[in-house]
């Protein structure tokens, strides 16, 4: 006699219903991350005319730094299934790989000019921003801003 035959019919129905109900939930749980490469400078404008000023809310968060103006170089939004890494090229020099570790914790690997530089694990939410930054020439700086989005 199979084990299915030993289970009560109501239990089988409940399990089936549970699987069906859980499927869309699991899909909905796949988070999206917004990744921005930002240029920080004290100059009034960006050297590249294609760069747009960073949105005021995010720029306000960066006021703790010494630079006055911030420009978005690149902006990407990626869906991150659990434990599936996604690689993004943000510029010619900068590449990152993102991995969803669960519970809003993410792993970010950074490559600079082809060299694997850092691996960072941090909690990222819609409100908790992860900022990875570094100095650049002419007293400017680059920023990689990572946050969850809807």
């Amino acid at each position: 006699m199979s084990s299915m035959m030993l289970m009560p019919r109501w239990l089988v129905l409940c399990l089936c219903f549970g699987f069906v109900a859980a499927a869309p939930l699991a899909q909905a749980a796949e988070p999206k991350l917004e990744v921005q490469l930002v240029w920080g400078t004290n100059d009034p404008g960006s050297p590249n005319a294609d760069h747009k000023p960073l949105d005021s809310v995010t720029a306000k968060k960066l006021r703790i730094f010494k630079w006055k103006n911030y420009f978005t170089v690149n902006r990407e939004i990626v869906s991150l299934p659990h434990r599936v890494p996604r690689k993004l090229r943000l510029s010619d020099q900068c590449e990152i790989e993102l991995k969803n570790l669960g519970n809003q914790r993410y792993e970010v690997d950074i490559w600079g000019e082809g060299k694997h530089v850092k691996k960072i694990k941090e909690k990222v939410t819609k409100e908790d921003l992860l900022t990875i930054a570094g100095d650049d020439k002419n007293d400017c700086a680059w920023f990689i801003l990572v946050k969850e989005v809807e």
Binding site: K115, I120, L130
Partner: peptide, 27 residues
């Protein structure tokens, strides 16, 4: 933040601003 150094040439400073709810890893 939990930072793993993979390139000895690059150092990092990490800190968190609770007021801005932002973790910064400065390389």
């Amino acid at each position: 933040g939990e930072v793993e150094t993979l390139n000895e040439e690059m150092g990092s400073i990490s800190f968190r601003s609770e007021s801005e709810r932002m973790t910064v890893i400065y390389l």
